[in-house]
Every structure is written in structure tokens, then in C-alpha cells.
């Protein structure tokens, strides 16, 4: 029998429940192996460990399980020094201190500090100090509790401005005021109500311009090359495609639509100047944007 197998069956062997064949093999192994004999005597309680070996054994057990208890003991040391630790904790901590040199030294240092520190509360100044204080307070007016100076509003504001976090607070309040006033800088989705509403407004004004332009041209005796209905349909197609492909905001869609309408009108009239309307805002940027991928000029 090998030592490893003997260690595994040791409990059963000690309890006397090992089968006869294995028991015989274990006894033969014990006759040959001094280490396993020592182990058996330790388990049976016939032999005690030496103190150093016992400490080593406890340390190895702690290291492989919970770790040393020094951190927990340190947390309790102050209350232990102040004698306000519960009895149970007190006994366990005392047991730990009996065996841990580092914690014992720390406890001794804490105890010494507890005795020394109160003695450092008072440091006497030189002899002339009292005379100077008495001279400085002679004839000084004394304020009653209701005469305490109240800070005026100007001082309050100055103190507020001097605070280090004032800049952060001002930036936060400014952001809170800025967002509702000017709107979020994030892009609106294409199906947002604002985008839909703006697109409809553009369609209506575009259709109205085309109708009035066609009427004006008819009055002058010229004939439009396409019907107004075809132009309206094409305008709607171009605007929708542009908005979907570029994901613009409501204002961008409006600008885009204006430039598209302008371009359509130029194509319609054969690059002849369009009569400017006073009631319709003209696009500020005359530079033509690149056409959408599926855009065909009329």
C-alpha cells in the first residue's frame, strides 16, 4: 500500500471499518513507513505536535482556507484598547494576540499612544503670551448674541463667486437653460413629428409657387413643359429621397427643399430668371447641393 492510499483510508482504518484484506495491507505499510506511523499516532491523539510545528500547521491551514486573521484583528484593536469590544470578540482577539507577534506589537503601540496623546493637548506658549492677549482685548466691545453681524447680500454674492465649484454650478445651470431654449443638438429621426410637419409645409409652399409661376407664365403666353401635378410629385420624391439618404434635421430638410425647388424652377423655365416672391423666404445659400443618388433633374 502506498502512503497516499493509506492517508485516504486513514479515517476508515482508525474507525476499524476497513475490509480485512486492506487492513492487512495497511498494517504491513505501517510496519515499513515511519511517517505514516506518526500520522496514525497523531490522529489517534497518542502524540501531540511540538509548539512550533503546531503553529506551522495552523498557519498552513489558515493560508489554504481563509487567510490570516490579522486584518480582522487590526479592525478590532482600537475598540479593544478602548475597552468597548463585545466579550466574544474580546476573547477571540486575545487568543489571536497570544499567537501573533505583529498584532501584539501593534496593540502595544496603540496602548502607548492612548496614554501619550492626551498629554500633547496643551502646549504652553511663552510667558508674555497672556499679557499680549490681555492687552489686545482691553477695551474691546463685546457683542451680544442678537448683535451678531449678519452678512449682507453683496458679501454673500462675493463669497459665492469665490467658491471653487461655482464654475461647475454655473455651467450646469447654463446647460439647463440652453437646452430648452435652443433644442437638443442631436439629430431628429426621420419619422419625428417635427420633420414630417416641416416636410408638409415645404410641399405646400413648393406647390403654391409652382401654381403661381405656371399661372404667370400662361398669362405671358408661354406654355409650361410639364403639368403642375407632375412637378409636385417629382418634388415630393426628391425631398423624401434626400431626407432618407442624408438623415437631416427639419431645418436642413427645409433648406434642401428650397434649393431643389429653385433648381426645378430653373429647369422648368430654361434657366430664365425666376420672379422673386416677397412672401416666400429665399434660400440663403445659392450653392447647389449635390443631387441625391436617385434624383433625376426634370
Amino acid at each position: 500500500m502506498e502512503c497516499r492510499i493509506f492517508e485516504e483510508r486513514l479515517d476508515v482504518f482508525v474507525a476499524g471499518n476497513l475490509p480485512a484484506e486492506e487492513r492487512r495491507a495497511a498494517e504491513e505499510h505501517l510496519g515499513e513507513c515511519a511517517r505514516c506511523r506518526t500520522l496514525l499516532s497523531l490522529v489517534r491523539g497518542e502524540e501531540a505536535l511540538a509548539p512550533q510545528e503546531e503553529e506551522g500547521l495552523i498557519l498552513s491551514i489558515l493560508n489554504t482556507t481563509s487567510g490570516t486573521a490579522c486584518a480582522n484583528a487590526t479592525l478590532l484593536l482600537c475598540d479593544w484598547i478602548d475597552a468597548c469590544l463585545p466579550q466574544d470578540d474580546c476573547e477571540m482577539l486575545s487568543l489571536h494576540l497570544d499567537h501573533c507577534r505583529d498584532c501584539r506589537a501593534l496593540a502595544a503601540a496603540l496602548q502607548e499612544l492612548k496614554e501619550c496623546l492626551p498629554g500633547m493637548a496643551e502646549i504652553e506658549p511663552d510667558e508674555s503670551f497672556t499679557d499680549r492677549v490681555l492687552a489686545a482685548t482691553v477695551g474691546l466691545p463685546r457683542r451680544a448674541w442678537h448683535d451678531r453681524p449678519r452678512p449682507d447680500s453683496l458679501q454673500w454674492w462675493r463669497r459665492l463667486l469665490r467658491r471653487p465649484r461655482f464654475a461647475w454650478e454655473a455651467a450646469y445651470i447654463g446647460a439647463l437653460l440652453f437646452l430648452p431654449a435652443l433644442g437638443s443638438p442631436a439629430r431628429l429621426p426621420l419619422d419625428a413629428p417635427e420633420v414630417t410637419q416641416a416636410s408638409r409645409a415645404v410641399m405646400r409652399s413648393g406647390g403654391q409657387i409652382l401654381q403661381e409661376t405656371a399661372a404667370a407664365l400662361t398669362e405671358r403666353g408661354k406654355t409650361a413643359t410639364r403639368s403642375i401635378r407632375d412637378l409636385q410629385l417629382q418634388t415630393r420624391t426628391v425631398l423624401t429621397a434626400t431626407a432618407q439618404s442624408q438623415g437631416r434635421t427639419a431645418s436642413a430638410v427645409r433648406r434642401k427643399a428650397s434649393s431643389m425647388l429653385d433648381r426645378l424652377m430653373r429647369n422648368l423655365l430654361g434657366n430664365s430668371p425666376v420672379k422673386e416672391r416677397q412672401d416666400v423666404p429665399q434660400p440663403q445659400n445659392r450653392q447647389q447641393p449635390p443631387p441625391a443618388p436617385n434624383h433625376r433633374p426634370a
Partner: peptide, 28 residues
């Protein structure tokens, strides 16, 4: 209380001269 005030001031400012002036100011 002069020792107490002077002691606190010394521990805070770390300078005996400043602590003395501060202790006097505190008494005022």
C-alpha cells in the same frame, strides 16, 4: 485655555510664531 488653543494652532499650522499670532487672534 491658552495652552489648549496654542496646542491646536501649533498642530494645524506647524509653526510656533504663526500659532502664537493665531492663538491671540482666537482669544480676541
Amino acid at each position: 485655555f491658552q495652552g489648549r488653543i496654542y496646542g491646536v494652532a501649533v498642530h494645524y499650522v506647524g509653526n510656533p510664531e504663526d500659532a502664537r499670532d493665531l492663538a491671540q487672534e482666537v482669544f480676541v
